[in-house]
Design a protein around this nucleic acid. Structure first.
Lengths: 359, 359
DNA sequence: CTGTTAGCGCCTTCAT
DNA sequence: ATGAAGGCGCTAACAG
């Protein structure tokens, strides 16, 4: 037979002090005599009081000490992708240091097929700030919902949102560096494997019409860089997730479409390391050598302990990016300052790129 | 110049109804005329009202609609481990269906070296239920803290907690099946690579004293199964994380200690697939063939798209396990019922086990 | 179906 | 250094 949970009032009574004094004993936000404090804490322990009720505190203070982290459409995808994971890790540690909790928010509601509607949590959960890890797109309903609620925003990768803090990296410059490196090696026939374009995911070759539909910022920036570089791009293959198997499937499709070694692309620019690794595996399975027959480059600079060799890639400071988002949150909370940060990237030449085969 | 956020009272006034009626328009927890509802919602839109303030709702209703998910010591580790990720995925989807938010809670506070103290979030964040994904250990301070707060618990893997819902798998049976399979093939000399033992992580050979210190349930159950099976166990190597590189390092240590092919162990029982995969890579690098020279088995049954061949392993239903935890949460919330679930596992024979080399 | 009433538990003035 | 009072925004219970 358990009685109702004790409240601060009960503790105060038991300790023979006023409620406001008891409050001070827990919050340490005012002067209090050591003896009084001990008396209160003892009474609390006696009664089995577990500390101030968060709901009461939140209502009174107007703060939740919770940050809503909006991760793509499916949690699984974010967790499976080592890139997301590292960003999340930097973010959570920066937030943890400020004793801010991380509330995972799916973002979009998943319906039977396709996904429509904003997740109810986004509409109703208590949070001081929301972080859109993978950017906001045009007319993003999640942004609208958060706006209506008056919740400030931090956006990763994507510059379309006014009034929101932003953390981005130099996607365009990174891919340009990759392309230049390959061009310097003598490559002339390129193909690129891209990240997903938008929420309605699909896998396959990209035509002009489809190219107009790129909504996700990293995808767009990285693709634009290849187009802007002026190299001869024989094709663009869009994947529906940044996983090894998608990279392999894309590479097989590419080999299928270019069966003749004389006209086959010699340089593959993949928009992520996992896609690149998958492409390399598919090439090896097809009996081709990397980089002697085909060069492959990735993007991200993640660890692939199982990968034989080392990917040529653009290293982005993932954990730091997450930390920067965390700092942007803290800044927003501290004084409402909206910060914009851009992180540098760095070309890392590995063993998967080399001169094209002589003809 | 922005005025203060409107409250439900403002909306009610603007719509010309009482506050409680306005509340019904949002919560749908009572009868309300369609016309009234529209009137209220229109007034809300007019005023830019973003919906009921969560803090008010929480205080009044006593519910947060938030579940605290306590993941090991470092978020990174949980995210990096595909096993955790799949469990988390099943859990979050089961909780999402009930519109419950997931609050990530680190569990233990990380100090300069080592980790001591319960994370402040565990003490102070609002949550209806807490889930300890990777079990509770003896005298777990996190459990004590949650107990004091009166927060009900769901524990994955670990049966030491009274009064808490439990979801577990048949670790012992799974490893026994592996060992039997290897014994049937003719193996006589075994070695096992284990998951971390406890919070004070270390890497290296395990002696009798260390063996007493196993605190994490899956590690203990899986190790006990090998010991109970009665096979000749030449050594136990403890890792400090379930990652490919740890498996490789462990395997190198094993080869180092047993340089003579005649007395070398022929069967490696790894407590996770990633450890097993790492072991296989290290063996191949050492010029040994799997399974002709050495057989390797794992545990978990995860996808390893980059792995050449298929691991012999014990498949556990990870996503279902997560879902089961989610259901346990919902049960707890619905009527306080404490459920206990045990999930079955299944031996899957792949290409990494075979008869030992003839002598 | 709608309105009235009465707090939920806490923290922040402000006074002592 | 401590106490008294008020109210944060909402919803449950009941009355009409």
């Amino acid at each position: 037979m358990s009685r109702a949970r004790p409240t601060l009032t009960d503790v105060a009574h038991a300790a023979g002090v006023s409620v406001s004094t008891a409050s001070l004993a827990f919050s340490a936000s005012g002067p209090i005599a050591e003896a009084t404090r001990t008396k209160v804490l003892d009474a609390a322990a006696e009664l089995g009081y577990g500390g101030p009720n968060p709901a009461g505190r939140q209502l009174r203070s107007g703060r939740y000490d919770i940050v809503g982290v909006v991760i793509g459409d499916k949690l699984k995808r974010s967790f499976r992708d080592p890139v997301s994971v590292q960003v999340l890790d930097g973010l959570t540690s920066a937030l943890g240091e400020a004793d801010l909790g991380v509330l995972l928010v799916p973002g979009v509601e998943s319906g039977i097929d396709g996904e429509v509607g904003v997740d109810p949590l986004l509409m109703s959960a208590g949070m001081d700030v929301a972080v859109l890890i993978w950017g906001a797109h045009v007319d993003d309903p999640r942004v609208d919902a958060l706006r209506r609620r008056g919740i400030p925003l931090v956006v990763g990768e994507g510059n379309e949102v006014d009034d929101a803090a932003l953390v981005e990296i130099d996607d365009h410059g990174g891919v340009l560096a990759i392309v230049d490196h390959l061009r310097d090696l003598g490559h002339e026939r390129f193909v690129t494997i891209t990240l997903p374009f938008r929420m309605g995911r699909r896998e396959g070759w990209v035509d002009d019409a489809r190219r107009e539909l790129v909504d996700w910022t990293p995808t767009r920036h990285r693709l634009d860089a290849v187009l802007d570089s002026g190299v001869d791009l024989l094709g663009t293959y869009e994947t529906e997730a940044s996983l090894v198997e998608n990279g392999s499937a894309a590479m097989r499709a590419i080999l299928d479409r270019f069966p003749d070694p004389a006209t086959r692309p010699t340089a593959v620019v993949a928009q992520s390391d996992l896609l690149a690794a998958g492409a390399v595996l598919a090439l090896r399975e097809a009996g081709l050598r990397v980089p002697e027959d085909v060069s492959v480059a990735g993007f991200d600079g993640i660890d692939l302990p199982w990968f034989a060799g080392e990917l040529t890639t653009v290293v982005q400071p993932l954990e730091e990016k997450g930390r920067a988002m965390g700092l942007a949150v803290r800044q927003l909370l501290a004084d409402g300052t909206v910060t914009r940060t851009s992180m540098p990237v760095r070309l890392r030449i590995g063993t998967t790129t080399g001169p094209p085969p002589a003809r």
